Computed example of a mutant assay.
Amino acid sequence: MTTTETRPPSAAQPEAKRNSPLSAVLRARELPVALALVILVTVTAIANPLFLSPQGVKDLLLNATIIVILAVGQAIVIITRNVDLSVGSILGLVAFMTGSLFANVEGIPIPVVFLAGLALGAVLGAINGLLVTLAKVPALVITLGTLYIYRGVNNAWAGGTQYFAGDRPDAFGALSVDTFLGFPVITLLALVVVVVVGVFLAGARSGRDLYAIGSDPEAARVFGLPVGRRVFLAFVTNGLLAGLAGVLYASRFNSVGATTGSGMELDVVAAAVVGGVAIFGGSGSVFGAAIGAILLTTITSALTALRVDKFWQQAIVGVLILAAIIIDRIASVRTARKLRISEARDV
């Protein structure tokens, strides 16, 4: 006679509950950010009904588009336990190059300008990646240096020159004016970027490798992962997306010059961190980074609509960054503690 050992319902039930889709959603790092965004929009719309007018929604989406693309690239780098502070300077260089091409090369096709911007951004990102992976110097130090180098190159190239909306083709400027199904064209392009990169990180082996590298670089090397190559490609991808953002910036705004993109790197890092991308690497998603970017730009728009002083706008963003880092740290400590308890029980 044989007996079949069955798992006690009391043990099986909690495990099933933990693995349920609802439980997974509730544990998602992006959920608090999304809820904060919904609450912010609702409260602001009640105080100022024009905030959610068709034009108001369009402005919100357009304001977030550039930061969303930059935050996606930054998230890829931060997941590998690095950071890129030069993205604002890369955007500025590409944006000025875009204006220069339209102003000085008669009849240049718009797709060629996009390809040139992507190529320049990828090259600048590759420089960062090579310096980080070959010199073995922290990315914070390397990209702080290239931030000033790229900005200096832009200053030397641009000087006092500025390119305005009249220097570009109408079709190029229409990218940030025209809509499709009610959404600005460049916002839909940003959405495509978020989805493609998100699917890559979740489904491709090389994308999952980035999380392993960020969690423990030394362990990743022991397991045979090409750490240097993966980190290099993360910086190249980040530079490429910064190049795309630079081209779209030239379409979105009326002028580009030597100071274009100055200070944007801090907003981009803030968007990624607030969106649940752990500053210590190894966790987070580009979807969360995108939501974080929308949240930060919406905060600025909401406080402006409510006539709140600009100082308080910056202070609130700073509080959000600190809160995101503290919450992430607490969550990491709790996870490590549960793991130790579970291992002790198994023993």
Rank of each mutant, 00 (worst) to 15 (best):
V38Y: 05
T3E: 13
L93Q: 01
A139M: 00
T80E: 12
V333C: 13
R7I: 14
R252M: 06
N154F: 00
G160V: 02
F102G: 06
A135R: 09
P217L: 00
F172G: 07
E106Y: 12
V269H: 00
L339T: 12
P109Y: 03
P32Q: 12
P109W: 02
V197N: 00
A278Q: 14
V317I: 15
S176R: 11
L91S: 08
A11H: 14
I66W: 15
N238L: 05
G261S: 09
I46M: 13
V231R: 00
G166F: 13
S176W: 10
A344Q: 08
F180V: 09
T3S: 13
V317H: 12
G160M: 08
G263R: 14
L60E: 12
N63P: 05
I213Q: 09
P8D: 15
R345C: 06
E265C: 13
A219M: 00
F51E: 04
D309S: 14
V57T: 10
S23M: 08
V193R: 00
V231S: 04
A336Q: 10
R340Q: 02
I66M: 14
G281M: 12
G257N: 04
G214M: 03
Q313Y: 03
V317D: 09
G243I: 09
A293F: 11
T6L: 15
V153I: 14
V199Y: 07
D209P: 07
V274L: 11
L140V: 06
V43F: 12
A64S: 15
P9R: 10
G224S: 11
S206G: 04
P32T: 08
V105T: 01
L241W: 01
S89M: 13
A116C: 11
D209T: 03
L144S: 02
P9F: 11
I321A: 14
G152F: 02
E343Y: 06
E30F: 14
D328Y: 12
S176L: 11
V177G: 10
S283K: 13
G198W: 01
G159C: 06
V33C: 10
L91G: 03
L201I: 01
A336S: 12
T179I: 07
N82S: 12
I279R: 06
A156C: 02
G121R: 03
L233N: 12
I76K: 09
T44R: 14
V132H: 01
L140T: 02
V256D: 08
V193L: 00
F96I: 01
A336P: 07
T2E: 15
R337S: 06
L40D: 05
V231P: 00
F200S: 05
R345N: 07
R345Q: 04
A220I: 03
E343N: 15
P8R: 15
L241P: 00
A71S: 15
T237D: 02
V141L: 10
E265V: 11
S206H: 11
L70V: 13
P109N: 02
S255Q: 13
I294E: 04
Q162Y: 03
V317F: 12
V137D: 03
G107W: 03
I316Y: 01
L26K: 09
L147P: 00
R7Y: 06
L201M: 10
A278V: 13
L144A: 02
V196F: 08
A122N: 00
G73F: 15
F311P: 06
L91R: 05
S262N: 15
G276E: 03
N19Q: 15
K58W: 11
I279N: 05
T4I: 14
